[in-house]
Amino acid sequence: MKITLESVSFTYNGRSVLKDVNLEIESGKVYLLVGKNGSGKTTLLKILAGLLVSRGKVCVNGEVADPISLRRLVGYVFQNPASQIIGATVEEDIIFSLEMLGIEREEMEKRLKDALRVVGLEGMEKEDPLNLSGGQKQRLAIASVLVRDPPFLALDEPVSMLDLPSQIEIFKLLLELKEKGKGIVIATHELEYLEGVDEVVHLNDGMIDFRGSIMDFVAVGFPDVEIPFSWRILEKCRTCSKRRMEDAHTLDKR
């Protein structure tokens, strides 16, 4: 499956926030959306998830899709997890979208259990979400979306409040989901765990000025995105070995 944004533009009260954005999101791939504060990441994800209506076209497999069907297709995790809480208990909050989908009760129960286990919130079913810690709220937000099992995920800084081990845990989980064929877009400032990312998309003031592999992204280098040291070294090694290969090649020729 494939979602395409075709010349998507968006303005907030006359201020242009996205300008002529073109992007394809495919099943089974992980996309990283990066860019500085206010560059339009959240806006782009919301358009993708059918929560904002833009100028331009959003197509699914080549056909223009309406917001309602996009919402069913793309699970959206909010940047601020507190703003996505609906239920009065953890359990209720996770179940909400399943009730909307009309899923059988046994299935609901099974999915609820799975979702709680996956994000590590077992035993907190009856807690009031408002009393959870920031990180726990973030886990709940992820669980409430995973439980729906949508083919695409749009995650807006999903690990910003998690401690390091939990961040790794969630990224592992996302990679597993990728293997299961989900298309995943992650807006993030957290670039430590880039394995398995298929494409980096860089937003600059509402425009996409880079799309490509991590290595290329690291090679180009953007001042507004901090690249972890380990990736810089990896990239150096790659360019070094490439140069050595080329050197060897020219030596051969001589």
């Binding site: 998830a49 959206y76 809480i85 609906i86 899923i103 059988e104 009760r105 609901m108 609820l112 409430s144």
Partner: peptide
């Protein structure tokens, strides 16, 4: 602002105003 946020959150969870056919809590 909170009301606005909640509306979007509910839309994101597929709320349309139609009563669900199957309820989790019986």
């Amino acid at each position: 602002r909170k009301a606005e946020e909640l509306t979007v959150a509910m839309e994101a969870r597929l709320y349309t105003g139609e009563p669900p056919k199957i309820r989790y809590r019986q």
